[in-house]
């Protein structure tokens, strides 16, 4: 095949050509996989949890299909990690999803390309325990407490410090995801846990002796347990006509919940594997709304707690503030 033995040929040239050939093949494969489609596509993230109840309803009632133009292909993807959802939307692998408000604020401070589209559900939280020695918040001074989400942790610390003069140390606090939290409280590996009603009902299936010993106040629960609908900046910049249909779908889901929370609770109950009554109660306690509120207060709390290194931007200074639905403050 070769006229001369290979050792006489310029090895460097052969190597460079081999690399170039590989690069061409790789680029070609990449382009084939990512060739432009005729149809536009929107990927929405959901999860079977109270936090995602509105967007789950959007999915179940096919509201995106109702409002989006026919040329838009809709894909639903389940993700149970808020960080994963945030990253997927920031990198435009997905276009809409629900993320905890504190995470959204810290991400915006770190220049994540996200736009806040609407408010999400809030959850009533309480401190639950199976320990007979704990009967009120005052008994938590030296106990190990688990929680899910930075918000729950911050509101727990704030509430106990302000109302019970108990200053919890980092040693006492365990931040876990929902399933880990339920597992640990069920196995008595933590003394108490901050849980939503939904989480508590799941935990009580394995530990019927769990009871609530303290409810976090409505104010602090409101701050620490809200989720926001966020969207991909690049996607909606390129497809501004799709923003309104998405908002219509989301708004209709919220209206459906508020109009008949019982019916929606019964619809979502088999998906969430939670009693319909509990889901309904959550809707009644915190009726979902579209408008964003409390941004500056939450951002300040994060900064004071050391979650942000620099003073945060004001709500009015964030990208796409003008188009973000907001509550009159």
């Amino acid at each position: 095949m070769f006229e001369q033995p290979l050792k006489e040929t310029n090895k460097f040239k052969v190597f460079a050509m081999a690399l170039l050939g590989l690069a061409i093949i790789a680029v070609g494969a990449f382009l084939c996989i990512n060739k432009p489609r005729d149809k536009r596509k929107i990927t929405a993230i959901y999860e079977y949890s109270q936090a995602c109840s509105v967007i789950t309803l959007v999915k179940e009632n096919q509201l995106l299909e109702k409002y989006l133009p026919d040329d838009v292909e809709i894909e639903w993807v389940m993700m149970d990690s808020g960080s994963d959802r945030r990253d997927a939307i920031a990198t435009d692998r997905a276009q809409i999803g629900v993320v905890e408000n504190l995470k959204v604020i810290t991400s915006l401070e770190n220049d994540y390309p996200l736009r806040i589209l609407a408010n999400g559900p809030a959850s009533y939280r309480g401190i639950y325990t199976a320990d007979d020695n704990i009967n009120s918040a005052a008994d938590l001074a030296d106990k190990k407490i688990a929680y899910q989400g930075t918000g729950a942790g911050l509101t727990l610390k704030k509430d106990l410090a302000e109302n019970y003069q108990i200053n919890l140390t980092d040693d006492q606090l365990l931040s876990l995801n929902e399933q880990q939290l339920i597992d640990l409280i069920a196995q008595d590996q933590v003394d108490a846990a901050v849980m939503t009603r939904v989480m508590a009902s799941k935990a009580m299936q394995v530990r019927p002796d769990l009871r609530m010993v303290h409810s976090l106040t409505e104010e602090t629960a409101r701050i620490g347990a809200t989720y926001w609908l966020i969207g991909s900046v690049s996607y909606f910049d390129q497809n501004p006509d799709l923003l309104e249909p998405v908002m219509k779908a989301y708004t209709e889901a919220i209206e459906t919940i508020n109009k008949d929370p019982k019916a929606v609770a019964e619809q979502l109950s088999p998906l969430f594997e939670i009693d319909a009554e509990i889901i309904e109660q959550e809707f009644l306690d915190f009726a979902p709304i579209v408008e964003i509120y409390g941004y500056d207060e939450i951002a300040e709390m994060l900064y004071e707690n050391g979650e942000l290194d620099e003073a945060p931007k004001k709500f009015a200074e964030i990208p796409y503030y003008e188009s973000t639905p907001k509550k009159a403050e």
Binding site: T106, E109, N110
Partner: peptide
Amino acid sequence: AFGAIGAAGGLGYYININRYNGDM
């Protein structure tokens, strides 16, 4: 994987919490 463990967690905790906050 654990997320946060006890007091100042280790390096894995540090990476996780900062990923959570979006501080790459």
